[in-house]
Structures are given as C-alpha cells and as structure tokens.
C-alpha cells in the first residue's frame, strides 16, 4: 500500500511537471470575474447614456444623416471613456491577479510559455482591433459588436494552446455570440454585455474553483 501511494505521487508529479513546463498555468480566474463585472457595469452605463440621449440603444445613432461619423460629439466621447475605463481596470486587475497566481505557483511570468501565450493572443487581437478601427473610420458601427466578439474568440482559441484548455471553450462561446450578434444587428450592447460580461464571469468562476483555490 505504501508503494501504491508513492507511485501515485510520482505519476501526479510527472503530470504536473509536464503541464508546468509547456503551459502558462498561472492565469487567474478571479481576473475573469473582475473583467466581466466591469464589462457589465460599463455596458449598463453606456445603455443609460444612450437612453438619455436618444431613447435608443443602437450604436447606429452615432452616424449622422450623411452616414459619416458625427464628429466626436459628447455621447461618443462618453462611450469611448467608458470603454477605456473598462479596458484599463480589467487589464490592471488581470495583470495583478496573474502576478499573484504566478508567485503562488512558482511560475516565471516572463518565461517561454507566457511569451508564446501572449504572442498567440495578441496577433489575432491586434488584427481585429485595427480592423474595428477601420470600421469606425468608415462609420460602420453596426458591425463592431460581432467583429470584436469574433476576433476576441479567435484570439482566445489561438492562445489556449499555451494555457488551460478551458480558455478554448470561452473562445468558442465568444465566437458563437459574435456570429449570432451579426444576425441581430443593432443589439450590439446586449451581446457585448453577454460576451464580455456574463461569459467572463461564468468562465472566471469555474476557473477559480477548478485551478486557483488553495
């Protein structure tokens, strides 16, 4: 019986080492929850502002009659600020919580695997970001929700090779939401809240209890 316990320990040690040497496993589930809560707060705030200005929740109201961007009017500025605030707080929380997790797990945050993770995440993400900016330049706001969700989903799937496999499922969820939102154009805010808010909270909570507790 003593031997069996020893063997079981060896096996789990082997598995742990293989995982730790090929994947960045210090992602924090809590940071997903923070990002999700921030996204929901941001979306509600944006919804209220839009209601107040136009009694309308479609992003298309930012277009004027000539179809071009109606300047950086106050509403656009406010929405932009909300988006930036959500992004900054989410990123900061993500970085801090991941640093803490890496310290706990004794994993190097600037190792080979975290670099591969970051590279594979950023390439589709930056491509999508630039593409969305071009859409804004053309005044096609209506496509922003599907595009951001789809590109974010693709980025997650591409990064998931270098971390928990669960990240892939989050990516698939984002892509499905993005495609559905392309059918229901004009409901972008709702889909954003679901994709960046609800999905992140669900995923983050699951991850926290699966990997980060103790």
């Amino acid at each position: 019986m003593e031997d069996a316990k020893k063997h079981l320990e060896s096996l789990s040690e082997i598995k742990e080492l293989m995982e730790r040497s090929t994947k960045f496993i210090s992602l924090s589930g809590l940071s997903g929850v923070v990002a999700g809560v921030m996204a929901l707060a941001g979306a509600s705030l944006a919804y209220m502002r839009l209601q107040l200005y136009y009694g309308n929740t479609s992003m298309d109201v930012l277009r004027n009659s000539s179809g071009r961007i109606a300047g950086m009017n106050n509403l656009a500025k406010e929405l932009f600020l909300i988006a930036v605030a959500v992004l900054v707080v989410s990123l900061l929380a993500g970085i801090l919580l991941t640093l803490r997790e890496a310290k706990k797990k004794g994993q190097n945050i600037w190792g080979k695997n975290s670099m591969l993770l970051l590279g594979n995440l950023l390439i589709p993400l930056i491509t999508g970001g630039i593409f969305c900016l071009i859409m804004i330049y053309h005044g096609w706001f209506i496509l922003l929700a599907p595009l951001t969700l789809i590109f974010y989903g693709l980025a997650l799937i591409s990064a998931s090779k270098y971390t928990f496999v669960d990240v892939k499922y989050l990516g698939i969820g984002e892509i499905i939401l993005g495609l559905v939102s392309a059918i229901y154009l004009g409901q972008g805010l709702l889909f954003w809240a679901m994709g960046f808010g609800v999905l992140h909270i669900v995923y983050g909570t699951l991850m926290h209890f699966k990997y980060n507790r103790n």
Partner: peptide, 24 residues
C-alpha cells in the same frame, strides 16, 4: 524523483536549458 522530473520535462519539450530545468 529529480531524474524522473528531468525526463518528464524533456518528454514534452524539445530542448530545455539548465536554468529552466533548475527553476522547474
């Protein structure tokens, strides 16, 4: 355990340098 550990890491990585092994 250490020899088993070294081999575990080398089974799933192509080339691993001394310091990375030490850290792992």
């Amino acid at each position: 355990r250490i020899r088993l550990g070294i081999m575990s890491v080398l089974m799933v990585n192509d080339w691993v340098d001394f310091n990375t092994l030490k850290e792992l």
